[in-house]
Design a protein around this nucleic acid. Structure first.
Length: 483
RNA sequence: GGCGCGUUCGUCUAGUGGUCCAGGACGCCGCCCUCUCAAGGCGGAGAUCACGGGUUCGACCCCCGUACGCGCUACCA
């Protein structure tokens, strides 16, 4: 059996689109599942869209997500180069072959004539605007002459009329087109660069790609590709056209309506595990109720046959849930690494925090946060003493008699000797008993005094984490301010 | 306009002719747990399976049509 070889072939626009991430992921999963190879090929044949550093960004984003490719621009491989802009000679050779066998032809039409043609066809309300094959009728001599005097030209695909073009798609089954609806596509542009259509077919064949897994936006141009495979006498790869990722209004996922770059999600603090997990489920499921997956589990379970046909709305709420879910299942050491990084970028960068302390913060907050940065933002009291006190909680929990009661509690705390969590707890219980009030009457104002907030981890975990000295300092400060 | 693809709770989806007056997840609501907030447990609201015709003893599942949505329609990918 032939080796499974798939490719992710993005054009370098400057960033990695999340839809691209999903396409890359499905290719990756399919390759790994079938012991095949995952290839990265850069489709940079549009010089007018050249973006500095785009390829580097793309590769960085892919690597961040954990999708390592086996062959590609900076990974090597026996089928290179993997940048289309470095394969111009190859395309030239094959386009010449097309001209020789009549499946391609030179076209010297000017952009102006093409525009006139289109306008005219539109005026006549023709079903579809198509090139009129004008240059197909040029004589050999005319062509030679034009070439010699240097008239700019393109090379077009010679589509024969009245033919059924049929191909099988793993996701959509059989798809049929009428060749009368297929335009004589430009294959080589006047700047001598190929268009996507020629380049992707030539490269997929030369790189021995077995399965073309790409977005549904390519389905309509697949007949052109099929015609090219046939024109060259090459075996067609298997096709799988993935459903699109959608905005909440069901249009194709776009910048206008939110973040689309993988880098955006990374910068917002999403875990790569969550993004991968989420995007994998947009259009695919294993057929059971499992929704939490790690990459290796996805490899094991993935199959193209279980990919949906309909587009999927990118739903942030579910992504957020998965992020929290992955965070909770992550081991504390790994979280520590990420948190350290986050702290470096925060106002607490200069603080001297021990691993031991941060690990305890992580343990205390793990079930209460959805993002790494929330280990800082939702509980600043672990890093600095409160500067203000949540008003709602003050109104609710700091009564006229509270000062005196908290003072009593303070007394009990003072006499503790390097207290553990349990020691704080029994001290508070005793205090409450002596005052003849419920524990809650002390706990709530104490939380407010110590953290400035009304929410947080278990009270005694918090006290133990801060330590006796700090707790007492904060109680004093609160009393002086809240009275 | 033409061509292509699609259409199950708000969203992601299960479902391949009877077990579906449609199951799970996110979100939402309620209850329990509880020192708060979470997490967790339990429960609830939420889909006339786009619509209309067939086929069949029987259709979410098969066929046809319509509507709607999306994609493509470049010397962009």
């Amino acid at each position: 059996m032939k080796e499974t070889r798939v490719r992710f072939a993005p054009s370098p626009t400057g960033y990695l689109h999340v839809g691209g991430l999903r396409t890359a992921l499905y290719n990756y999963l399919f390759a790994k599942k079938n012991n095949g190879r995952f290839i990265l090929r850069i489709e940079d044949t549009d010089r007018s869209r050249f973006v500095e550093g785009a390829v580097e960004n793309l590769i960085a984003a892919l690597k961040w997500a954990g999708l390592e490719f086996d062959e590609g621009p900076d990974a090597g491989g026996n089928y290179g180069p993997y940048m289309q802009s470095k394969r111009l000679e190859i395309y030239k050779k094959y386009s010449n072959e097309l001209i020789a066998n009549g499946n391609g032809y030179y076209c010297f039409c000017t952009p102006e004539r093409l525009k006139e043609l289109r306008d005219e066809q539109e005026k006549q309300k023709l079903p579809q605007a198509k090139y009129d094959k004008h240059c197909l009728n040029l004589s050999k001599q005319e062509i030679e002459e034009n070439l010699k005097i240097g008239i700019p030209y393109v090379i077009r695909l010679n589509v024969r009329p009245n033919q059924r073009i049929i191909f099988d798609d793993i996701i959509r089954d059989r798809v049929e087109f009428d060749s009368n609806n297929v335009d004589d596509q430009v294959l080589i542009k006047s700047d001598s660069y190929p268009t996507y259509h020629l380049a992707n077919v030539v490269d997929d064949h030369l790189m021995e790609v077995s399965h073309v897994i790409r977005g549904e936006e390519w389905l309509s141009s697949t007949p052109k590709h099929v015609l090219l495979y046939d024109a060259f006498g090459w075996e067609r790869p298997k096709f799988a056209h993935l459903p699109l990722l959608l905005n909440p209004d069901k249009s194709k996922l776009s910048k206008r309506q939110g973040d689309v770059a993988v880098e955006d999600y990374r910068d917002k603090g999403y875990l790569k595990e969550a993004l991968i997990n989420f995007v994998a489920l947009l259009g695919w499921n294993a057929g059971d109720d499992k929704e939490f997956y790690y990459l290796n589990e996805l490899i094991e379970k993935f199959s193209l046959e279980r990919v949906n046909k309909a587009g999927a709305v990118f739903d942030l709420q579910k992504l957020n849930w998965l992020n929290a879910e992955h965070l909770r299942k992550m081991n504390n050491q790994s979280i520590l690494l990420l948190l350290r990084q986050e702290i470096l970028n925060s106002q607490f960068a200069t603080l001297n925090l021990t691993d031991d302390y941060l690990l305890k913060v992580i343990e205390a907050m793990k079930e209460r946060v959805s993002f790494i940065k929330e280990f800082i933002t939702t509980c600043q009291y672990f890093y600095t003493s409160p500067i203000e006190y949540e008003q709602k909680s003050v109104d609710k929990n700091w009564k006229p008699e509270t000062t005196q009661q908290i003072n009593h509690l303070r007394g009990r705390f003072t006499s503790l000797d390097s207290p553990k969590k349990e020691d704080f707890e029994s001290a508070l219980e005793m205090s409450a008993e002596e005052l003849g009030i419920g524990k809650g009457m002390l706990i709530h104002p104490l939380r407010l005094a110590v953290s400035g907030q009304s929410t947080g981890p278990g009270m005694f975990d918090l006290l133990f984490l801060l330590g006796k000295e700090e707790v007492i300092k904060r109680i004093d400060k609160a009393i002086s301010i809240l009275g």
